[in-house]
Design a protein around this nucleic acid. Structure first.
Length: 273
DNA sequence: ACAATTTGACCGTT
DNA sequence: AACGGTCAAATTGT
């Protein structure tokens, strides 16, 4: 998203809510047609994103006299913890979640790049039911030499602009080489330029037909993301434990929101699976 | 030659 | 049986 701190928050808020409204209308018309579940799924993500942004803007207005408290916002944001909605979610198909759910935490990220500053090795790719794009599976490059058990799953959620949805499982325990902070900016900028480059767009279009993966460049940018990763497995686990006992939580972070999140010093968590 | 990726097979869970 | 996650042989890249 655009840095709303640089624009009128009210304008941004209205914009996000209006988008959510527009996506909802689109979804409504989609649901009237059969065999459109994939598009519907995309729209649901967009709607979720719009409302999340709107709530984030509200958070930014926290200093105003009429602002809601954190608990009030949460109460409005997630009003029906015991309602039909939640019960429905708990009943949803959880096939494929079985292995990780019992053993580790996870968190998510949505960004224009799949790079996060860590070294990953792709070990699989699957077509996912009702998903337009395949899901790619990555493990830490140091899985065997340093017994690092971190993995991630990357899936394109939209194109134009390209947007990746990444789910991380486990924290790195390896001494993975990270890009020094002072060299980060130039490399990151380079990557951002690359994404607007026509040759790269062509590359991405090819990836769409054969399934995407460009793991070799994973180290290139987004050291910034590291700053938002839980610093240690225990830190993350304790966060999970504090929030919820049995359920799985994920942290949804857009790299575009990182500066904002840094200012708020908090990460929004949602239930996973 | 070695490292990384691709992709079909296999596995556990539902 | 269907599904998502992982494995590993084959292929491709450096």
């Amino acid at each position: 998203m655009e840095d709303f701190l640089g624009e009128n928050p009210h304008k941004k808020l209205i914009k996000e809510l209006a988008e959510g409204k527009r996506f909802t209308v689109q979804l409504q018309s989609l649901l009237k047609q059969p065999n459109e579940s994939v598009l519907a799924d995309e729209l649901i993500r967009k709607i979720w994103g719009s409302f999340t942004q709107a709530i984030t803007v509200l958070h930014s207005l926290g200093n105003s006299a009429n602002s809601l408290t954190q608990s009030q916002i949460e109460e409005v944001d997630q009003p029906n913890s015991g309602s039909e909605l939640k019960k429905k979610k708990e009943k949803q198909d959880r096939r494929g979640c079985y292995k990780r759910r019992k053993t580790s935490g996870s968190w998510m990220r949505e960004s224009e790049t799949m790079n996060d500053g860590c070294a990953w090795r792709k070990y699989g790719q699957k077509k996912i039911l009702n998903s337009k794009y395949p899901r790619c599976y990555y493990r830490c490059t140091h899985k065997y030499d340093q017994e690092c058990r971190a993995t991630k799953q990357v899936q394109i959620i939209q194109k134009n602009p390209i947007m990746y949805h990444t789910t991380y499982f486990g924290n790195h325990t390896c001494n993975s080489t990270k890009i020094p902070k002072h060299t980060y900016n130039s490399q990151f900028n380079h990557a951002m330029v690359k994404h607007s480059d026509s040759t790269v767009l062509k590359e991405e279009e090819e990836e769409e037909s054969k399934g995407q993966s460009d793991n070799a460049s994973s180290i290139v940018d987004s050291n910034l993301w590291q700053d938002f990763m839980p610093s240690s497995p225990s830190a993350h686990d304790s966060t999970l434990a504090a929030n919820y006992n049995a359920a799985y939580y994920e942290e949804i972070i857009s790299s575009r929101d990182m500066e904002d999140l840094a200012k708020f010093g908090e990460i929004e968590a949602i239930e996973f699976c």
